[in-house]
């Protein structure tokens, strides 16, 4: 089966979701993986090395301890995530688009939670009658679990979306407007 790629782009998208989608997605994945590397390093330091949480500052925190407790950092990452998921969404088609939007929806709420924490931290005004900045879900769950939970449930659909994006079926490849999928593997018309 061959695909006529000259007729495939169904819609017009900007550079970010077209020719530049592969680069932008790689950069975005770099940020996501670097963030996870930090969290897994912290987990290793606590669970394997037996350090106390204040001593377990990941990689960046090893050199810049203030980063770990910075609400700017946490909110900044949440913001980067929600913006990245939003601006790169049009490059995804078919099943990949569905999973990507699921990740975006969850991250949007996660971002709202971080925004609440950020406002409380910056104004030194804890909400909900608490002594420290508290998000809505934190009223029920402790923070570490909450943060880890959100990051994981956002990451899961994101990975599925990337899977379908980089491994589209032929119908999805026909709709694709970016060069992320391995087009070299696609039979081309003679």
């Amino acid at each position: 089966m061959t695909i006529d790629r000259t007729t495939s782009p169904p819609t017009s998208v900007g550079w970010l979701n077209g020719a530049g989608h592969r680069t932008a997605l790689n950069v975005f994945m770099f940020v996501v993986l670097a963030h996870w590397a930090e969290h897994l390093t912290q987990a290793y330091q606590i669970y394997v090395l037996g350090r106390t949480p204040p001593q377990s500052r990941g990689v960046l925190g090893q050199f810049f301890p203030w980063l770990v407790t910075s609400e700017w950092l946490h909110y900044g990452y949440a913001l980067v995530m929600v913006v990245g998921l939003f601006v790169l969404r049009k490059g995804f088609v078919g099943r990949a688009r569905t999973w990507w939007m699921v990740a975006f929806a969850i991250q949007f709420w996660h971002h709202i939670e971080h925004l609440l924490l950020f406002i409380q931290a910056q104004t030194a005004t804890p909400f909900f009658g608490k002594a420290v900045p508290t998000s809505i879900a934190q009223l029920i769950f402790p923070r570490v679990e909450l943060h880890l939970f959100y990051n994981t449930v956002v990451f899961l659909p994101m990975v599925v979306a990337v899977y379908f994006h980089l491994r589209p079926n032929r119908a999805e490849l026909t709709q694709a407007v970016c060069g992320c999928a391995n087009r070299a593997a696609v039979p081309v018309p003679a």
Binding site: M29, L166, R167, N169, L173, A181, N182, A185, V186
Partner: peptide, 9 residues
């Protein structure tokens, strides 16, 4: 996923 990309199905 990033390192290995099979043929289109």
């Amino acid at each position: 996923l990033l390192f290995s990309r099979p043929k289109v199905r």
